[in-house]
């Protein structure tokens, strides 16, 4: 499929980029791995494409002011191979390794991955394919073709967001009116149709991700279930982080974040049950049970929601068992 026509801009600086956003119906392209496919399928037909690839000031990994700061245009390949990331936050490097395929990791950026659109078996299809169905809610139709409700149930499938949310990372958004910090929790709308603050007519550009350095002391991992060893989006994924006291048993803080099973990366309350407790196999099982009850997957992909929930539960059990260094 050929790409639709659009006007194209590739400003060399952020300063020059921001005014272009006000032209209306503009879309920002970073690595392009999500957007180009959407364009070929005519899921989007923006008048303007604004590429950030020339903006060198958005490509960096530095420690500064108590944060690990990562420029939004940093590719996942750079993140997975960065000695700094691997030393401080190995779970982030590992999450980057789990995204799509090694080739796409060389193109895709951390900013783009956070802005990943939600996905659904009725939405992520060609222009021709969609003619056989009613227009789905996400594409501007009246009803969701999965639930038949006036709501979108497309699933967020990003692999980078869960672990960043577990560390309470925040992002920087540059806009014509100024630059602001935003927590990732605030960035995600949990609305499948417009999954984040910059989706649909973006008024700003995501420029940086900040991870508080104190979180490097936490035991963390991102764990992902999929049918094949590469390429696939998660059928369920979990970002897990626990702050263990020096004895390695008492849990002082914890986070469990789900992906692939809902409208956004879900920060689950079940993690609270770990805090202040000694981590045991029994406790992990009950936390996982509770976490699995908090997610409500619907059939947006090939795998049934019942299996997704069961698989998510096992991800949490195995992941926490691993982090707490308990025997299986």
């Amino acid at each position: 499929m050929r790409l639709p026509e659009f006007d194209f801009y590739e400003p060399p600086t952020l300063q020059e980029a921001l005014p272009l956003l006000t032209s209306g119906n503009a879309r920002i392209i970073a690595g392009g791995t999500d957007l180009i496919v959407a364009l070929k399928r005519r899921l989007e037909t923006p008048a303007v494409i604004l590429s950030l690839h020339k903006i060198k000031e958005l490509d960096y990994i530095v420690q500064d002011e108590g944060y690990l700061k990562i420029g939004a245009m940093t590719t996942l390949k750079k993140i997975k191979t960065s000695p700094t990331v691997n030393r401080l936050f190995p779970a982030l490097a590992q999450a980057a390794r789990e995204v799509a395929s090694p080739i796409l990791q060389g193109q895709a950026t951390i900013g783009g991955n956070l802005c990943l659109n939600t996905r659904c078996r009725y939405y992520n299809q060609s222009e021709f394919w969609r003619q056989s169905q009613q227009t789905c809610y996400k594409a501007g139709g009246e009803k969701c073709l999965v639930t038949h409700k006036q709501d979108c149930s497309a699933s967020f499938s990003g692999d980078m967001a869960p672990i960043l949310l577990a560390w309470e990372a925040d992002i920087t958004i540059a806009a014509p009116e100024g630059t602001k910090q935003m927590s990732l929790r605030e960035f995600f709308t949990y609305n499948s149709k417009i999954p984040n603050q910059l989706a649909a007519n973006p008024k700003g550009i995501l420029t940086e991700v900040r991870i508080p350095l104190e979180k490097k002391e936490w035991s963390s991992l991102y764990t992902k279930a999929r049918l094949r060893g590469s390429i696939d989006f998660p059928l369920a994924g979990a970002g897990l982080a626990v702050d263990l006291d020096p004895s390695g048993r008492l849990c002082r803080g914890a986070a469990i974040v789900a992906t692939g099973v809902g409208p956004g990366p879900l920060v689950l309350e079940a993690a609270g049950d770990l805090v202040g407790q000694e981590i045991t196999g029994e406790l992990i099982k009950s936390v996982a049970q509770k976490a699995a009850a908090e997610i409500h997957p619907v059939r947006t992909g090939r795998i049934g929601p019942r299996y997704q929930r069961a698989r998510f539960k096992t991800l949490v059990i195995d992941g926490l068992t691993n982090l707490a260094e308990l025997e299986d």
């Binding site: 299809q125 060609s126 394919w129 989006f233």
Partner: peptide, 16 residues
């Protein structure tokens, strides 16, 4: 209607 008309949804074996 075919719901597996690309290499993401139609899962043939990878090197892994």
């Amino acid at each position: 209607q075919l719901f597996s008309s690309n290499f993401l949804d139609y899962k043939l074996p990878l090197a892994t």
